[in-house]
């Protein structure tokens, strides 16, 4: 995660990985990807959100926030062929959201541009039943919205102003 990568490129890398994963692994097509070019004030979380930290030279947090209809459909496909009892179902849906962010961000770190320095991923944490997260004074949130026939997924990249800044052209760059 070093220069010349900027936040727009990171968001594009992760969005493209998400698109491939959804299509190749789940057979779900992405109808539209909308990139938020500016930082947002607060995260309005959807039904289920998975979040992990990526730590190399700098630390970033990534969050995937799913509509209920989308994560439910995705889980149905992801869990095909394995036995899941009704008691386990909700836990496994949460684990599915954790697996997705782990796989997509984990696969993407090879494109984050830090050669020779190990990048550590945290285990994913799950936030259920949407809540808002307000921006801390030094925090920066960037958003991409992925739309499918089954609902939406918001992808958030969260960093601090010390890491993410905006240049004169309005492009947020990693310092």
């Amino acid at each position: 995660m070093a220069l010349p990568l900027n936040i727009s490129i990171l968001m594009e890398v992760v969005s493209e990985r998400t698109k491939s994963f959804f299509l190749d692994e789940l057979g779900i097509s992405i109808n539209q990807i909308t990139y938020g070019k500016e930082s947002v004030q607060k995260l309005k979380l959807r039904y289920l959100t998975s979040l992990l930290a990526v730590e190399g030279k700098i630390k970033l947090y990534w969050a995937f926030s799913f509509d209920e209809s989308l994560i439910t459909e995705a889980f149905k496909i992801y869990a095909q062929g394995i036995d899941v009892s009704e008691d386990e179902r909700d836990d496994y849906i949460e684990e599915t959201a954790g697996d997705f962010i782990n796989i997509i961000i984990g696969n993407a770190v090879s494109q984050f541009g830090e050669k020779g320095l190990p990048i550590n991923l945290s285990p994913p944490i799950i936030i259920s039943e949407g809540k808002n997260i307000h921006r801390h004074r030094n925090g920066e949130f960037y958003t991409t919205v992925i739309e499918t026939d089954f609902g939406k997924l918001d992808i958030y990249c969260i960093g601090s102003k010390e890491i993410l800044n905006v240049d004169d052209a309005g492009i947020s760059k990693l310092k």
């Binding site: 782990n102 993407a108 090879s110 050669k115 190990p118 990048i119 991923l121």
Partner: peptide
């Protein structure tokens, strides 16, 4: 693992792993 960074493959092999399969 899902971790696709080359450096992590090297660390795993150095630790004694005999192979590396990328998720999914």
């Amino acid at each position: 693992t899902a971790h696709g960074q080359e450096q992590m493959v090297i660390e795993a092999i150095d630790a004694g792993a005999k192979g590396y399969v990328l998720k999914p």
